[in-house]
């Protein structure tokens, strides 16, 4: 079991969809939302995922396939 922390960015059309609920149904992970700002146009969610590392990777891939931008909380890790 490991914990990973991410920032999720969603476009307006995804903001109305219960993505986190779907995530919990599809993957055996504990999630904990720490921060969130949602407007009609964009949503940003700070989330901690806890579980098997492979399942976390699958969950991240699934989120990306749904159009969610997933970044570690340490964003801008690569700089110029």
């Amino acid at each position: 079991m490991i914990k990973q922390r991410y920032w999720l960015s969603l476009d307006g059309n995804l903001c109305k969809r219960p993505l986190i609920w779907e995530l919990s149904r599809n993957f055996d992970l504990i999630f904990n939302i720490r921060n969130a700002s949602i407007t009609g146009e964009i949503g940003i969610i700070g989330i901690e995922l806890e579980g098997n590392p492979e399942v976390i990777k699958e969950a991240v891939s699934w989120l990306e396939s749904q159009g969610v931008h997933v970044e570690p909380v340490e964003i801008s890790t690569i700089e110029g």
Binding site: V60, H69, V70, E71, P72, V73, I75, T77, I78
Partner: peptide
Amino acid sequence: SYDKVNRLCSEIA
């Protein structure tokens, strides 16, 4: 991709 490199760097750190 940069996203994946970014994530790995975060894990390494």
